[in-house]
Design a protein around this nucleic acid. Structure first.
Length: 766
DNA sequence: TCTCCGTCGCTTTTT
DNA sequence: GCGACGGAGA
């Protein structure tokens, strides 16, 4: 692997600032901060790492710090950059800072890495080969492009799936690596050494689409900063103070990005907790936070260790557990709470059904004791685990909500209609156009699309434009031509209307005139009414947007999980999406070897992966304010078959003085006998099916399909070589003679098919 | 172009 | 055990 820090080496290290630090008078908003918190707020100058343990008042410190800098007139809002990972976190911060200092938050650069990057990139898009109205692809689009690239390279997509390539490329982008920066070993990682070439082809394709994916937003800004020092200098000068939340989750690209921006003023404050780094599998580098003091010489480190959230028993358990990890910066959470609270309860159960039943009973008991369901959460390792609980809760009538899951904008009907809007906004958005060209069904099928693609590639124009050309020919069947013509006419109409129509009205028009709404009205599936509901919801959600562009930007960046506020309900969510949240009562089911820690993760990532799993357990425990109930089942259904399972190793890492096994049900005992019946006697159910398949992919050799792609010769036909009288061949219409040439359109008398107008790229001279 | 059927593959997912 | 996807046939 090449040194991911190549880029950094081109950059001066951020040196120690002579930090004046501290403030003179103590402003009122310092009241109530503990000593460490106050320090984290007051040290405004120079690099600062705030190690904020779970429940130590991190958000409060962040917002107070922001307010403090603004109040002290150290910087104008427009000179501050505050970066979060989620839109939700950004929103919360904006609200809380707003509450502290009022309207001055206007002008603050507060947002996610991605939204801040877009803001910069739109201004300078031309410098990295994009137009400023570039579109931001979501994962689906990304995958579709990837498939095209793989297909174009004549690689068998079965053997080398687009998914895998996408992951590979994403990881490169996470590291800040452009195609030209890969070293040989890395580039050879896919389809017998063609990974690097495919990456380059993919980037090229995105450029012609005037599009970026998520990783590009950062990568392109990095390119911009390193290639144009004048632009970089402008932003370096502007951002006097930079604040970063959840620093343990930054990837290399983000690190480099921050490092470049912070270079001038050196006032970079990063807040994070190495023990809560759980996104390594997505390219996050715990190393960033571990290395902070080396990266930024002279950095100060403040530890927030006083916990205001959990009971001593919970804290004691969490601390003991996480102590099993190596390579931590080390913190010890403490609380001066005199009441130790309830011990953590650990329960072994027979199977998933019993587990769900038990949790259900507990919740009912809590409910009777006056606890609110909103304050109860069930945190699972994998989302499919929620199903058993849902089933049970439906049966016994406990209201619940799934937190996370498919976000509003990820739903099919919403994506479809957004595709319509994207085409209205940017007719050249091929991916969007392709998505809806036959939705609802118009009879425009694969064959038509194929022809359009061929022509589009040949003429280097978009599908939408090409459609216009084809409509003037006999290339398409009359039926298809009519329908496509109507569609295009509709788009022209909508586009003309877009400028002076309110967004909800525009969308309603599109829904009605495209037949899309009707499609769902006629559908007699169970989900149809819900989808129509969602579309209605979209209408009201768009009311607040001034322009179509503003809305589309919002959509690409804010794949918000609409906070299903609702009434009082139990929360079902994954451990990953629980980070940053807290609940009175937390249930942690499924603590079994193979499931948690997850076997596949272990297979792929070894010790580092195990430690990340442990951090996940730590995150789970520290979500709880008052009580934690852990459970493990002796038998777990994995896909079709029953697997025997052993308790998670993490259970043994919980200290008996803080965590106790509930009285034996006698149920778990049966397991052991069950085990002897010949099922796997090894601890983990996992490695059997999971890991192996991945191995196959690497082991098996040749791709290659090739040969059969039609019409290489047609693609190669140079333009303008047709003359009147020339004899030609057309795939569909057969042989004929050219009667007239009008630009790229030919008027041809075919021997069998009669007189037709066709596009020259579909015709070969003979 | 649509529909039916067999095969494959199965974790987490802030943007 | 289930859904997504691709190929074959109507």
């Amino acid at each position: 692997m090449s040194d991911p820090f190549d880029l950094a080496q081109a950059v001066e290290p951020v040196s120690a600032g002579a930090a004046p630090g501290g403030t003179v008078a103590v402003p009122p908003y310092f009241a109530g901060l503990n000593e460490a918190q106050a320090e984290a707020v007051a040290i405004t100058e120079g690099p600062l790492l705030v190690l904020a343990g779970a429940g130590t008042g991190k958000t409060r410190v962040l917002t107070t710090r922001l307010a403090h800098i603004l109040r002290s007139r150290l910087a104008w809002p427009s000179q501050m950059l505050a970066v979060t990972f989620t839109n939700k976190a950004a929103r919360e911060m904006r609200e809380r800072v707003g509450a502290l200092i009022g309207a001055a938050v206007e002008g603050l650069w507060l947002g996610t890495f991605h939204s801040n990057a877009v803001r910069i990139l739109r201004r300078h898009a031309d410098l990295v080969g994009l137009k400023s109205d570039f579109s931001i692809l979501d994962v689906d689009d990304q995958l579709r492009v990837m498939k095209q690239v793989i297909e174009d390279a004549n690689i068998d997509e079965k053997r080398w799936p687009a998914r895998a390539l996408a992951t590979l490329i994403d990881r490169w982008k996470d590291k800040g690596l452009r195609p030209d920066m890969l070293d040989r070993d890395e580039a050879a990682g896919f389809a017998q050494g063609r990974g690097g070439a495919l990456y380059a082809a993919y980037q090229e394709r995105l450029r012609t689409l005037n599009a970026t994916d998520f990783g590009d937003l950062l990568l392109h800004t990095l390119t911009l900063f390193t290639s144009r020092t004048d632009v970089l200098a402008e932003y370096q000068e502007r951002f006097r103070y930079i604040l970063v939340d959840e620093y343990q989750d930054t990837n290399v690209a983000q690190y480099l990005w921050l490092r470049l921006l912070a270079q001038r003023h050196r006032n970079l404050c990063c807040v994070g907790d190495d023990d809560q780094s759980i996104y390594g599998w997505r390219g996050a580098e715990v190393g960033n936070i571990l290395r902070f003091e080396q990266d930024f010489p002279g950095a100060r480190v403040v530890r927030l260790e006083r916990n205001y959230r959990s009971t001593p028993h919970i804290l004691g358990s969490a601390s003991k557990l996480i102590a099993h990890n190596q390579g931590r910066l080390g913190k010890t959470l403490w609380t001066d709470d005199a009441d130790p609270g309830e011990k953590i309860v650990i329960r072994g159960v027979w199977d998933g059904d019993e587990e769900a039943r038990l949790v259900g009973e507990d919740i009912e008991a809590l409910q009777r004791a006056g606890h609110r369901l909103n304050a109860i959460a069930i945190l699972v390792r994998a989302s499919f685990q929620t199903r058993e609980f849902e089933d049970r809760f439906l049966t016994i009538g406990i209201p619940y909500r799934i937190v996370g899951g498919l976000g509003f904008y990820a739903r099919r009907e919403i994506r479809d209609i957004i595709a319509y809007l994207r085409v209205i906004h940017q007719p050249d958005d091929d991916l969007a156009f392709e998505r809806i060209i036959n939705v609802p069904k118009r009879g425009i099928g694969e064959a038509t699309l194929q022809a359009m693609h061929q022509l589009a590639r040949h003429e280097r124009r978009s599908l939408y434009r090409v459609a216009g050309t084809l409509l003037a020919t006999d290339e398409l069947r009359p039926q298809v031509r009519r329908v496509l013509g109507e569609l295009q006419a509709s788009f022209e109409r909508w586009r003309a209307a877009a400028a002076q129509t309110a967004l909800p009205v525009l969308i309603a028009t599109v829904l009605a005139e495209s037949g899309y709404a009707e499609m769902w009205q006629l559908a007699r599936t169970v989900d149809a009414p819900g989808r129509l509901e969602n579309l209605k919801e979209l209408l009201s959600a768009t009311e607040t947007f001034e322009t179509l562009t503003a809305f589309l930007d919002h959509v690409s960046l804010v794949m918000d999980n609409d906070a299903q506020a609702g009434g009082d309900a139990v929360n079902l969510l994954t451990l990953h999406s629980a980070k940053g949240l807290e609940f009175d009562t937390v249930f942690l089911p499924g603590w079994e070897e193979g499931l948690f820690p997850n076997q596949r993760t272990l297979d792929e990532g070894g010790l580092a992966a195990l430690e990340e799993e442990r951090r996940l357990a730590y995150v789970g425990l520290t979500r709880a304010r008052q009580r934690v109930r852990i459970s493990y089942a002796a038998n777990r259904r994995v896909y079709a078959t029953w697997q025997a399972a052993l308790p998670s190793r993490f259970i043994a890492e919980l200290p008996p003085e803080h965590a106790e096994h509930a009285a034996e049900h006698g149920m778990y005992g049966r397991t052991v006998r069950g085990l002897e019946d010949g099922a796997a006697a090894t601890p983990s159910p996992g490695p059997s099916s999971f890991g192996r398949r991945f191995g196959n992919r690497i082991a098996s050799g040749g791709a290659v399909a090739g040969g059969e792609r039609l019409s290489g010769e047609i693609d190669l036909t140079p333009a303008g070589e047709f003359r009147t009288g020339m004899r030609v061949f057309h795939q569909k219409f057969g042989y004929g003679a050219v009667l007239a040439v009008e630009g790229n359109r030919l008027d041809i008398a075919f021997e069998k098919a009669g007189r037709k107008k066709v596009v020259d790229s579909f015709v070969a001279p003979v």
